[in-house]
Simulated assay, not measured.
Amino acid sequence: MPDSSLSSRTVLITGASSGIGLETAWQLADRGATVLLHGRTAEDARATADMLVAVKGVDANRLCTYGADFTLLDEVEAFARKVVTEHPHLDVLVNNAAMAAPERHTVTADGNEIAFQVNFLAHYLLTCLLEPALTSDPGGRVVNVSSSLHRTASIQWADPNRARRYSRLAAYAQSQLALTVFAADPRVTAVSVDPGVCDTALLPLYAHEGVSAAEGAAHVVRLCDPAVEIVNGAYYDRQERVEPAPAATEDRTVRRLNKLADLLVGRDTA
């Protein structure tokens, strides 16, 4: 049944073809939001939309699909341009797409460590490029799906690719810390949320078992609701607001990360 607070909202979800992203899309669509589904390929996104219509009974008119491989920043840019053109008023961006860092050090064609690019840099670039569409109306926001592992991380400023000393867990944690720091960027109204340990493809990083993806998604959906007031840069452990790692709210760290990210994604901010 449509929820009046969400029925007029347009929400873009990255990584919507599986796990928490898929469940978030379903819950938002079920509550009446227009949902923009991002998948690694256009075919993935369309298959997700077809499933939501056929199995979940979602109104097809509430779904739009997009494909972009986050290991290729050119595809992220094209994706952003298409969204801004087709949806010039975007209420919520859910930065959810994520991957576990591989066992072996892997660099993308853009020259970045793959988990740092997919989990953070692609979302940084996407958010910056969507800024013209992201509404400044009350309730407009970015929701970054982060992780408690950000607390174990440090950003290797001189070697963000971790070429000198690579650990898949450290690389993944660094990407989650960067995403959490980005929520404190004053250019956007944003929060981060750890949805808890969920039974998704990332589960082996955390534990042997977790709650359902639907349960984790509910914490993301709650923060998409304009009726839920947020403070820029806030961090939620499921539904409870808690303090993130100290580095995540330091103005100096936010500025330093923006400078590094602009360099790595090729943004000219001069």
Rank of each mutant, 00 (worst) to 15 (best):
M1D: 04
S7D: 12
S8A: 15
V11S: 04
V11A: 09
S17R: 08
S17G: 02
S18P: 00
L22V: 04
L22W: 13
A25Y: 01
W26H: 02
A33D: 09
H38S: 04
A42V: 11
A42Y: 12
E43R: 12
D44W: 12
V55I: 11
K56R: 14
G57D: 09
R62Y: 15
L63Q: 07
Y66P: 01
A68T: 07
D69R: 02
V76Q: 10
V76E: 05
A78Q: 13
F79A: 03
V83E: 05
E86K: 11
H87G: 00
H89K: 12
L90N: 08
L90R: 12
V94R: 04
V94S: 03
N95Y: 11
M99L: 07
A101H: 07
A101R: 05
R104A: 06
H105G: 00
G111Q: 06
E113V: 03
A115E: 07
V118D: 01
H123D: 08
Y124C: 04
L125P: 00
L126F: 13
E131Q: 14
A133L: 11
L134E: 11
T135D: 12
S136W: 13
P138Q: 13
G139P: 00
S146G: 05
S148M: 13
R151K: 07
T152F: 12
A153P: 02
S154K: 08
Q156R: 13
A158I: 01
D159T: 05
R165I: 09
Y166K: 07
R168I: 03
L169R: 09
Y172K: 01
S175G: 04
S175K: 07
T180H: 06
V181D: 05
F182M: 12
A184T: 13
D185S: 06
D185M: 06
D185H: 08
P186G: 02
R187Y: 14
T189C: 06
P195W: 08
L203A: 02
L203I: 04
L203H: 05
L205Y: 08
H208L: 06
V211N: 03
E215K: 03
G216Q: 03
A217Q: 05
V221D: 04
V221K: 11
L223I: 15
L223H: 09
D225S: 08
N232V: 09
E240I: 12
A247I: 15
A248L: 09
T253G: 01
V254I: 15
R255S: 05
N258R: 15
L260E: 08
L260G: 02
D262N: 14
A270T: 13
